[in-house]
């Protein structure tokens, strides 16, 4: 099935490719279970692309970087094809509606996805590193570096967002290609979307929550990985945290953990209106900080207060940062 999807992506790309196009997709690395983004700059590179259970990186991030670096080749004059899982497609939508990237430039290819596995989770389950992974139906057959062999259900290695299912819905947008069976996909996710999850913010008193936040964020090393992979963080080099001349030095405490809380508070305060809940921040965090406990809260807030789900369409203006006279407040 997955092999078929990969094949379909390739043939789709072959059929729509015009000279001067570019595509962003995934490819294999030498490390088992790790896929890396891959920039296809001419037609004969298409066959190197890979789509399987490990393609966790959201490629929408790269659309935010048009301002920052010259990712387009010099002879680019056509379209930028970008392969997306449905959750990433919503990040792309959000970038469209925030006018960060022009719709004319991008050609969206949404791929049917049955859950993405996290390689680091597999390592934890195996309690050791794996030298070889094979996929069989819904299980991984893993070979450990020490020589042990183990079969692990794929479901156990899923990224958190995949088991939740809240991010799996497709955007309302006419202009994308869908690879896979769309009706089947919609049917599968329809009962997932409305599951209710309890958040720590509801169950804990502020004091307990404060303690938990303190504990989790004290391990933050401020590497900015969460910020830089976030598709909603599009300020790139002009981010508040990188302004040498800002009058208020936001983060000037020698106490790192206090500092970290402020860093994440400001970051979420800035991106919450655009956060589609893609979970990239949590996946990228090298210290495994459960950042989902924050963005899930904001996602729900947006929905409850404004009936607004970021990334649902390509044109809805986000509610928190715009206001027109006469519009109802809140």
């Amino acid at each position: 099935m997955k092999k078929q999807i990969e094949k379909n992506i390739k043939s789709l790309l072959h059929s729509i490719w015009k000279s001067g196009d570019m595509a962003i997709s995934w490819t294999k690395t030498s490390i088992p279970g790790k896929r890396t983004p891959f920039f296809i700059k001419n037609k004969n590179q298409i066959d190197q692309l890979v789509f399987d259970t490990f393609c966790a990186v959201s490629l929408a991030t790269y659309l935010t970087e048009f301002n920052r670096k010259e990712i387009l080749p010099e002879d680019f004059k056509g379209k930028l094809h970008i392969t997306c899982k449905p959750c990433d497609a919503r990040s792309v939508m959000q970038l469209f509606s925030d006018m960060q990237v022009s719709e004319e430039l991008v050609n969206l290819i949404v791929i049917q996805c049955d859950g993405i596995a996290d390689e680091s989770k597999l390592t934890k389950i195996m309690s050791g590193y794996v030298s070889n992974i094979e996929e069989e139906n819904d299980r991984f057959i893993c070979k450990g570096i020490g020589g042990t062999e183990k079969s692990v259900p794929i479901r156990d290695c899923w990224l958190d967002k995949c088991s939740d299912g809240k991010n799996c819905d497709l955007p309302y947008y006419y202009g994308y290609y869908f690879v896979g069976n769309e009706t089947e996909y919609r049917k599968r996710i329809s009962n997932l979307l409305h599951t209710k999850t309890d958040l720590v913010q509801d169950t804990m008193s502020p004091k307990e929550l404060k303690k938990l936040v303190n504990k989790e964020l004290s391990s933050c090393i401020r590497c900015n990985a969460c910020r830089n992979v976030c598709p909603a963080c599009f300020c790139s080099d002009r981010c508040v945290f990188e302004q040498p001349k800002v009058n208020v030095k936001y983060l000037d405490s020698e106490d790192a953990s206090k500092n970290n809380i402020l860093y994440h508070m400001i970051r979420f305060n800035h991106v919450a209106p655009n956060c589609t809940g893609c979970g990239e921040c949590e996946r990228a965090c090298p210290m495994s900080i459960p950042l989902s406990m924050f963005y899930k809260y904001f996602n729900r807030l947006m929905w409850e207060e404004f009936e607004y789900k970021p990334g649902k369409t390509n044109s809805e203006r986000q509610k928190l940062l715009s206001y027109h006279l006469g519009e109802d407040l809140v």
């Binding site: 890396t36 983004p37 891959f38 970087e65 670096k69 590497c223």
Partner: peptide, 14 residues
């Protein structure tokens, strides 16, 4: 590689 790199600094801190 810089096309792909998001310049986060996780590599340097670790």
């Amino acid at each position: 590689y810089s096309d792909i790199c998001v310049n986060c600094g996780a590599c340097t801190f670790n």
